[in-house]
Amino acid sequence: ADADGAKAAAASAPVTPTPAPSSAAPSPRTSSPAPAPTTTPAPTPTVATLRDHTGSGIGKALAAATKAGLHPAVYLQGTGLSLDGGGRRASSWATGEEVCDQIDDPGDVNASFDVAFSIPRAGRDCAGRLLHTPAPTKTAKPSGGGSSGGGASGGGTEECEITSPAGNCYADGQFCAARHHGLSTHGRGGEYLTCEQDAAGRWRWSDGVAG
């Protein structure tokens, strides 16, 4: 009878269900999105700049540019030199000619040069003014004595500081050589002439009087 009572008690006791093992995978943890990669802009190419050589000789300025590994260019003053491509190139120069202006191109804007120098145009200074030599002092030329029938010949006070290759004095309006640009001399008639450009741009000896 006790055995039967024990079975009855066991049958009437509440049954606690055993949880079945879960087969589902654990849910992933929520994380913040990764930051987008940042791109570094490519550096703009730059060219080294040269110290200012304005006022020094063009030969010294060109040597400094070459030593610094720069590509230089020489232009004529007053012809519109700029990074945008203006200006007229100089065809020749003396090493001692003065540098009127210097333009650096560190941003490589102009493909023609890294640094550009301007020098005076022939017969002019950096301000564009004509070069004039001081008025020379005339000295009397000894008169040639004629022994017969004659007297002196050749005029007695004519003195020319600059003469033609043939040894003659120049006259107003004659063409003058490139080496005489901006220079002055007395002419064959005693007038004071300067080698300067006429209205057409040609270099002639002129006394400054029109006509």
Rank of each mutant, 00 (worst) to 15 (best):
V209Y: 12
S148E: 02
D2H: 15
T139Q: 11
C169S: 03
L130E: 15
A8Y: 07
R89F: 12
S112N: 15
V115C: 02
D172V: 08
A68C: 05
A152M: 00
P136D: 08
A24I: 03
A111E: 14
G155L: 01
A8F: 06
E98I: 14
A152K: 00
G211K: 11
R188G: 13
S153D: 00
E161D: 15
K138G: 08
P120Y: 05
S164L: 05
Q197N: 13
F175N: 04
A9G: 07
A36F: 08
G128Q: 10
R89S: 15
R124T: 14
G86I: 13
A127Q: 10
A64R: 09
G57M: 00
S184D: 13
G187F: 07
A116E: 04
T54A: 11
A111H: 14
P33L: 01
A13C: 10
G146W: 00
T30F: 01
E98T: 15
S153T: 00
D4V: 09
G154P: 00
S184Y: 09
S164M: 02
A127H: 04
D104M: 07
Y192I: 04
W203G: 09
G150N: 00
T38M: 06
A122F: 01
T54G: 11
G182V: 15
R51Y: 05
D2N: 12
L81G: 04
A10H: 11
R29C: 01
F175A: 04
G57S: 11
P14L: 03
L193D: 04
L76S: 05
D52S: 14
C100S: 13
R204K: 11
P72R: 03
W93C: 04
W205P: 07
S31M: 04
S12A: 14
P14K: 12
A135Y: 06
D207T: 10
R51A: 06
H186C: 02
S23E: 09
A34I: 10
G69A: 03
S118Y: 05
A122C: 01
A64H: 09
E191R: 03
P136F: 06
G173P: 00
P45L: 07
A177S: 13
A36V: 10
A63M: 03
V209R: 15
F117H: 10
L70R: 05
R129I: 01
D172S: 09
T79M: 02
Y170W: 13
P28A: 01
V99G: 09
V209P: 01
C176T: 02
P33A: 02
A210L: 05
A68V: 07
G149I: 00
D125H: 12
K7L: 15
A1T: 09
R129T: 08
A63V: 13
Y192F: 13
D198P: 04
T185Y: 10
G107H: 06
C160T: 04
F113H: 13
L62T: 06
A42K: 07
S32V: 12
C100T: 11
R89G: 11
R124D: 02
T44K: 13
A111F: 11
D84G: 12
D52W: 07
G167W: 05
K67A: 15
A6T: 11
V109T: 14
S184V: 06
A135H: 10
G80N: 07
G151R: 00
A111M: 12
R88Q: 15
E196H: 12
C195V: 14
